[in-house]
């Protein structure tokens, strides 16, 4: 796909993923779901599945596929929706995410369904991605490894152990995306644990680093296509937690909550009204 086609498809995906994520959230009823982190990451995921990731829908565990690790698994409404949209899982499998004993309940590792990691215990995914990237290079395979981190997740010391090692192993096949929504479970990042500049940190750890608007397909596309010879790439994607859901947008309550009818209506109206269209 050329640039225009990828961007076109990513725009299509960002709308369809939103619809699907809303329906998934709705299906959880009073239990609620991780709306905040799903809607901060939804455009990142739309761009990845829209054409940045190399994958085969008919063969999700194809050995040449690009790996995608959702280390912050709080984006499952969007990432599972992407698997369904891309044709790697069925609708039935998608909705098993919130069924007792369901196939996708508990965020398991199932490469056969396009799920490359079991995220959730924060701070582990980047290390795993580094292991995959090392082996890819060693075997001369040209797949890339994409790892999605939350900014809150970057409080974990193990994240910085990983950052340290990625440059040592010269992993130019590794792309880290930080969903920088500035909110974590208990509050604003600056109140809970001020992290300073993630960009400067990534540079200091030997990454090629680029800032992006995490809700702009074009900006994300540009970031994903930055050249990073001999170095891993870090994309600091500025996002808004619960983006597009008026009652919880950029609010700490968005982390895990019940989807309000008004928010559902507002986002559906926005989708239909062209807010997420390409201009």
């Amino acid at each position: 796909m050329n640039k225009n086609e990828i961007i076109e498809r990513s725009y299509e995906y960002r709308k369809l993923l939103r619809v699907s994520a809303l329906e998934m959230a709705k299906s959880t009823g009073k239990a609620g779901a991780h709306l905040g982190g799903s809607f901060s990451a939804v455009d990142i995921i739309a761009t990845l599945y829209g054409g940045i990731l190399n994958y085969r829908p008919e063969e999700p565990d194809w050995s040449g596929r690009d790996r995608f690790i959702t280390s912050k698994r709080h984006c499952y409404l969007a990432s599972y929706s992407a698997l369904c949209l891309a044709g790697m899982i069925s609708k039935e499998q998608l909705y098993s995410f919130h069924a007792d004993g369901g196939e996708l309940a508990g965020y398991p590792w199932i490469p056969e369904l396009g799920i490359d990691f079991s995220g959730g215990s924060l701070g582990m995914g980047l290390s795993a991605g580094i292991g995959m990237a090392i082996i890819g290079k060693k075997r001369g395979q040209d797949y890339k490894v994409y790892v999605l981190l939350g900014d809150g997740e970057c409080n974990e010391g193990s994240i910085w152990e990983s950052f340290m090692s990625a440059a040592k192993f010269k992993l130019d096949n590794l792309i880290v995306i930080i969903d920088n929504n500035h909110l974590q479970f208990d509050g604003r990042d600056t109140d809970i644990m001020p992290m300073g500049s993630l960009e400067e940190k990534a540079v200091a750890f030997g990454f090629e680093t680029v800032a992006a608007n995490g809700h702009s397909i074009e900006s994300l596309y540009d970031a994903f296509t930055v050249s990073h010879n001999d170095k891993p790439l870090a994309i600091i994607a500025e996002t808004v937690k619960g983006f597009g859901l008026p009652s919880i947008e950029d609010k700490v309550e968005s982390h895990h909550t019940v989807l309000k009818e008004d928010d559902y209506i507002a986002m559906m109206a926005d989708i239909e009204g062209g807010r997420y269209d390409r201009v």
Binding site: G123, M124, L126, G129, G131, I134
Partner: peptide, 26 residues
């Protein structure tokens, strides 16, 4: 040498990298 990796004093990362390798069949 091609099978050996020293990750520095960072045990959590060591297990994580090993996990990524294991997921690739190593």
């Amino acid at each position: 040498p091609d099978k050996f990796y020293n990750v520095g004093i960072a045990e959590q990362n060591m297990v994580g990298i090993a996990a990524g390798m294991a997921m690739e069949g190593v």
